[in-house]
Write a protein that binds this DNA or RNA. Structure first.
Lengths: 207, 207
DNA sequence: CCGCATTCGTACTGATCGGTAACACCGCAG
DNA sequence: CTGCGGTGTTACCGATCAGTACGAATGCGG
């Protein structure tokens, strides 16, 4: 985890960024600009500039802007997977603890991060369905739902599929609602998730 | 309600479109192209062409592309409001029937329309937070939630605010999930809504 | 120290963007 | 018929887009 931050203007605040290899810098800059400003409104020149390099170097590492977009989306998906794996490693065999940890993670996301919503969902909105990055996004979202199902199943919930659907949709709805309507609505999703899980657990145990 | 349709390619299939005044045609074309392809990737020339006119006429009716975007968003919001008002007029004083009608409307949306998600949410994703259209979107989403609260309140549900939040987030999550992951997940939202309302109603009545 | 391959930066290409100027055209009122 | 507002057409503007040619700089093995 780096200490890199970016304000809404897109200017990068990262002291040790210059020390990293160019490809990493470019991906880093693309990530921030794509997220905060949008994929199609950001030109490759702006990305190269934010990465403390130039357009030529960018095209030496990425064949085209589309390929950079795919790399951007892949990076996001890989980080999301990493969160799940670290969570599983932190509480091995304890699905209930993993769930609680995930809810805390969601709380952090909704309250302090993701002020522009889910980067992958935003990318899906901006990209045509046949764009190669869309497959990455769809796979990630599906795998995320499957992880939820597996978690709820292991934790002994009744009907883990339905529970995962509901949790998934609530989370997605919260993230998309952050940018149209503010954080107030989305911040209540954590309480809803906790209550939903508590009720569902009872439904599974008092059979 | 017109019989206008548009395929994913953006070609307009509307016989009596040529008879309408230019401004209406332009808005009509912009709506389809903005929704299916995205706001920033569609140029004004393509819009004018789809509207069976040219760029000059477009700029005679809209000062700039940004103003056209605002008009596009306003049109969407106005239609959404119209649905609510017609629903209220169809079942005057009967909040429960209005809720059921709304759920059926959601089912229709999720199952047959909105294959690219909510047009207003997509616009919010594409536009910067300070774009004038964003205020229209935020207002609409907030009013929509307030309508849900009012409906649930009149129908006698306990804690209509919390219920409206949950319903709202589920619906928003379903719409954003249509385009990343397919219709399978989103189609289950209707059952979740009905079950959620049934449970909440019981909670309000067996006090 | 030199030689060489890789990387970098300037400057460019053709295309397209949003937006405009100038003018021909059409229908309609008088 | 003449005038006139709205529409259509063509050409253009400066800016910016994705992508590239090519020389300058650079690091590194010898």
């Amino acid at each position: 985890m780096t200490s890199t931050q970016m304000n809404a203007n897109g200017s990068i605040v990262d002291a040790d960024l210059a020390a990293k290899p160019p490809r990493e810098r470019i991906l880093h800059a693309a990530r921030a600009l794509f997220y905060w400003r949008g994929i199609h409104v950001v030109g490759v020149e702006a990305i190269a500039e934010a990465a403390l390099t130039n357009k030529m170097t960018l095209y030496r590492h990425f064949k085209s802007k589309d390929e950079l977009i795919v790399a951007y989306v892949r990076q996001l998906a890989a980080e999301g997977e990493g969160v799940w794996e670290r969570n599983a490693a932190a509480h091995p065999g304890d699905a209930q603890k993993q769930i609680e940890s995930w809810v805390a993670y969601v709380e952090d996301i909704v309250m302090h991060k993701a002020e522009r919503g889910c980067a992958l969902a935003n990318a899906a909105v901006e990209l045509q369905p046949d764009h190669p990055a869309r497959a990455v996004i769809d796979d990630y979202k599906q795998r995320k739902r499957e992880r939820l199902v597996g978690l709820f199943s292991h934790a002994g919930y009744r009907d883990p599929d339905a529970l995962a659907d509901e949790v998934f949709l609530l989370f997605e709805g919260a993230r998309i609602s952050i940018q149209c309507g503010g954080k107030g609505l989305a911040s209540r999703v954590v309480g809803m998730l906790r209550e939903l899980l508590a009720k569902a657990e009872r439904a599974g145990t008092h059979r």
